[in-house]
């Protein structure tokens, strides 16, 4: 197991390097000049040629691509993500400042998704083709096909403008969290519910479920003791991938609700061509993806005893 984790972490370093080099290349090739974009925003008018030249020189933006690349590599290997062009603050500090908000939103929406999707998915499978099943499938189809920004706007319209129950944007209290978490949570719940249902149906067809029934076990025991753990395996895989996405910041939802998270800051950085911020965030997000996938892989060994990482060539 330790060997497996060590190997995966080594691969993680390669993945992160690859991701940041790729994003570096894309930024280099992308149109638009960061000096121009940022100075315009800071000065409030078009910068002069001298100002642009000064900015470019100050941030080493005139160097050839490979030189810039190696400067970046040198920096990150010394745990330094550089400074934001816009704010002048270290990128890592900017990220750490915003991460709690994103984390809060991510956990709340994942919690909502799990609380809806797992019980409804299971019930739907147990009562296949019942009214409940049809309704839940219809709702999940709606959930899958409804874009986040639209659902978010509808919720704002109804619950904050019309009923006045929750604030329509902002950050700070629990009531600020409700609408964005529901918006994001519903989007997550829909595919998760379909997966839970399909997986449970698949498990219920297995021979060992018949064996369990043949012993005289009640349907509840058959479902929960024999079915649930088996059915959960693909659901966990899906959730693991979603966690990566969530921690990267739910850009659209954060923007609609003016949620001061990672996603919104990253999008703003992209508009402003704030290269160090984009670079640094891509790197950290890649790290989250790799780590959440690793966590899921480790979780597998607890769910499914057939999966072992410490035996070479199986047994």
């Amino acid at each position: 197991m330790k060997k497996f984790i060590a190997r995966r972490l080594a691969i993680a370093v390669i993945v992160m390097l690859g991701a940041s080099l790729l994003s570096f290349l894309l930024l280099y090739l992308a149109p638009g000049n960061p000096a121009h974009a940022i100075l315009t925003a800071q000065l409030g008018h078009d910068p002069s040629l001298e100002e642009v030249a000064f900015f470019m020189a100050k941030h080493d933006l005139n160097n050839p691509f490979l030189v810039q690349c190696s400067q970046w590599l040198y920096m990150i290997t010394h745990v330094n993500l550089g400074m934001s062009f816009r704010t002048g603050e270290p990128v890592l500090v900017e990220f750490i400042d915003r991460f709690p908000a994103t984390f809060e939103l991510a956990s709340a929406s994942m919690l909502i998704a799990v609380l809806i999707a797992i019980p409804v998915g299971i019930l739907s499978a147990l009562k296949q083709n019942s009214m409940l099943d049809h309704i839940s499938r219809l709702v999940s189809l709606l959930g899958v096909s409804m874009p986040n920004f639209w659902l978010g706007l509808l919720l704002i319209l109804f619950f904050s403008l019309k009923l006045g129950w929750f604030p329509c944007f902002g950050y700070g209290t629990l009531s600020h969290l409700v609408l964005p978490a529901i918006t994001l949570g519903t989007g997550l719940a829909a595919p998760l519910m379909r997966l839970m249902r399909a997986s449970m149906l698949e498990v219920l067809r297995q021979d060992y479920i018949r064996t369990a029934r043949s012993k005289g076990l009640s349907e509840q025991v058959v479902m929960w003791k024999h079915g649930f753990k088996n059915a959960l395996i693909p659901v966990i895989t899906h959730m693991g991938m979603q966690i990566g996405h969530l921690l990267a910041g739910a850009v659209i939802v954060e923007t609609i609700f003016a949620w001061p998270g990672v996603g919104k800051f990253l999008v703003d950085a992209i508009y402003a061509r704030d290269y160090p911020v984009i670079q640094g965030f891509v790197l950290i997000i890649a790290l989250f993806f790799v780590l959440s996938n690793l966590a899921v892989d480790i979780l597998y060994t607890y769910l499914d005893p057939r999966i072992r990482y410490d035996v070479e060539n199986g047994k």
Binding site: Y208, S214, K215, G216, L217, K225, K229, N230, L303, P305
Partner: peptide, 29 residues
Amino acid sequence: IRKIRGKEIAMIFQNPLSSMNPVLTVGTQ
């Protein structure tokens, strides 16, 4: 019928690999 199953009449299935739950120990089952 559940009081009959396993207690009065028991079943042995073919293909024991698929007929046993992969995530529970043999002892438990």
